[in-house]
Simulated assay, not measured.
Amino acid sequence: MTRITFISPDNQHITVDAPNGESLMEAAVEHDVPGIDADCGGGCACATCHVILSDDLMAALLPIDEDEQYLLDFLDNRQKNSRLSCQINVSDKLDGMIITIPKQA
């Protein structure tokens, strides 16, 4: 299990234990983390699982693919470290990471 802390839009800190292999979005939804709506169920079709990552985590992940980039481009609150949590798989490299969920614009 990998321990991840989500910071919700209203600044709640929710720490979850997630199995490796599932997505960050799935971990958030399973633990009722506020701010992750996941309207498309993880199909990379909506951007309602938008998160902000640390520089360290961004550097450790695979680059954003074209589909994710397309959806992120439509967000008013996009930041340089924005990602869709449905596109990030839980792994040991996420252990102890803090994931910020931005306020919806």
Rank of each mutant, 00 (worst) to 15 (best):
H50K: 08
K93R: 14
C40W: 00
T2F: 03
I7S: 01
D67V: 11
I101P: 06
Q69H: 04
H13Q: 15
R78V: 15
D92T: 15
D55I: 06
A28S: 05
Q87M: 09
I4W: 07
L24Y: 01
I99H: 08
I101N: 06
I4Y: 05
A59D: 15
N11V: 11
L84D: 07
I88C: 10
L72E: 09
Q79S: 12
R3T: 15
D95Q: 03
E66Q: 03
K80L: 11
F6R: 00
T2S: 06
Q12F: 05
G41F: 12
E30N: 14
N89G: 15
G42A: 01
S8W: 04
L53T: 00
I36N: 05
D32G: 14
H50L: 10
M25A: 11
C44K: 00
D92I: 13
P9R: 01
R78W: 08
M97G: 08
C46G: 09
V51G: 00
L75Q: 11
M97H: 12
A27S: 13
I36V: 15
L62D: 15
H50E: 13
P9W: 07
K103I: 14
M25S: 09
L72D: 06
L94V: 12
I4A: 04
T5W: 06
I14S: 08
L24W: 02
I98T: 10
L24C: 08
V33H: 09
R83A: 03
A45L: 14
P34N: 02
D17Q: 09
A47V: 07
G42T: 02
L75I: 12
T48E: 08
E22V: 14
E66C: 01
D37Q: 14
G96I: 07
A45N: 10
M1G: 14
N77F: 08
D92L: 12
C40A: 01
P34W: 03
S85N: 07
D95T: 12
Q87E: 03
S91T: 11
D55Q: 07
E26A: 10
D56A: 13
E26D: 11
F6A: 00
C49W: 00
P63T: 13
I4R: 05
A60Y: 04
L24K: 01
N11D: 14
E30P: 11
L57P: 11
K80C: 09
T15N: 03
L62E: 15
S82Y: 02
Y70W: 02
A59Y: 02
S82F: 03
D95C: 07
K80N: 07
I99M: 04
G35S: 00
V33R: 07
L94A: 08
I36H: 02
C49G: 13
E22S: 08
F6D: 01
L72C: 10
I4E: 03
A105S: 13
G35A: 05
D17G: 10
L84G: 08
I101L: 03
T48C: 05
F6K: 00
